[in-house]
């Protein structure tokens, strides 16, 4: 729908000329790639194992039992130990990911209790949490959860918002009035509190939580789309289309929607950061995704409860700051690129 017409190209050029936003967008893209391919960078499974004249790629796919590598157990191979073993006796080689931990496994020591402070030699670059899970691993997988949650929420709320908003704006009349009242009422609900009450009852999963959140956050986009459609409906090109006998669906999807879709783009980054914050808040309060799912909010709660282990809260806050500021800067730049404000100045 968005093809590279000269207008879009100019917007893109303007976006790239805003350094702060452009660099943020690049960082964000890198983080997204890292999140999608997290198994290759942060995993307890090895990337490649060469053993007994064969190559194994255990990252994706079923677990490989220890017996495959002539170990004395049938559960999943511990590749960190395997690496030590094959390095010592020279029967093969193992390439581990840069961070050889998965977000769910606990690393316990005989002489100490977690949380362990960050250290190079201990192998946990950002330390471990209170049950001995690697924080960096949990941060990266937590980011993956948060960003996909937020994108899912965005898809649902924008889907409802664009659909309903366009209909409200285009049809108008009683249909419009009914939903106007509904939105007015619905947006007065103390949103987070009600979500918490409901979540405390049903312990939601990923999609239930998205649905629950969407139930209380579809109004914003709907309202914007309604106003935009309402304005576009009066334009001549819509009149022309209608005069030529275009159906309602055709007018909305082929004529009005492409013209107002740019507004959606300017709102999207802020919705993404809003989604991340909402999920983190719920997890912090203990009403988000069920443990042991890696999540920023849960880590933040641990860090808050254990202030002495400063590395827990410190690393989550640093990660949140990085992600949320880049998203916000991208949003500002997009807004600026789509709607440049020209001011007159007096000296």
């Amino acid at each position: 729908m968005i093809c590279m017409n000269p207008l879009t190209a100019r917007k893109l050029r303007r976006f790239r000329s805003i350094r702060r936003g452009y660099i943020s967008a690049l960082i964000l893209a890198a983080l997204l790639i890292l999140a999608v391919s997290a198994e290759l960078f942060v995993n307890s499974r090895a990337l490649v194992v060469a053993y007994g004249g064969r190559l194994y790629f255990p990252t994706y796919g079923a677990m490989v039992p220890g017996t495959t590598f002539d170990l004395d157990y049938a559960y999943e191979t511990n590749y960190r130990q395997l690496k030590k073993k094959v390095d010592a006796d020279g029967t093969g080689w193992v390439i581990l990911p840069p961070i050889p931990w998965n977000p769910l496994e606990t690393d316990l020591k005989d002489d100490d209790y977690p949380p362990f402070a960050p250290s190079w030699t201990g192998g946990h670059l950002l330390g471990t949490d209170t049950v001995g899970r690697d924080i960096l691993a949990r941060l990266i997988y937590g980011f993956r959860t948060a960003i996909f949650f937020s994108l899912g929420l965005l898809a649902v709320t924008y889907g409802v918002g664009i659909g309903l908003g366009c209909l409200m704006g285009y049809i108008g009349g009683r249909f419009d009035l009914f939903f106007q009242r509904l939105i007015e009422i619905w947006s007065n609900v103390p949103f987070l509190y009600v979500v918490i009450i409901i979540a405390s009852v049903m312990t939601p999963g990923f999609w239930t939580l998205i649905f629950l959140m969407a139930l209380f956050s579809w109004m914003g986009m709907t309202w914007v789309m309604r106003t935009m459609t309402y304005r576009e409906r009066e334009r001549e090109y819509v009149l022309a289309a209608r005069a030529m006998g275009a159906s309602r669906r055709r007018i909305i999807f082929h004529h009005i929607l492409p013209n107002i879709l740019s507004v959606v783009v300017t709102y999207a980054p802020f919705s993404v950061s809003g989604g991340i914050v909402a999920l983190t808040s719920l997890d912090y309060l203990g009403f988000g995704l069920a443990p042991p799912a890696p999540s920023w909010g849960e880590l933040l709660n641990q860090g808050w409860a254990n202030m002495d282990a400063w590395w827990i809260a410190g690393s989550v806050i640093a990660a949140m700051t990085l992600v949320l500021t880049t998203v916000t800067f991208v949003g500002e730049a997009v807004r600026e690129a789509f709607d440049p404000k020209m001011y007159t100045y007096y000296e």
Binding site: V277, T325, E332
Partner: peptide, 8 residues
């Protein structure tokens, strides 16, 4: 200000 805005 934007950094403060981004973080809840």
């Amino acid at each position: 200000v934007f950094t403060g805005y981004a973080i809840p």
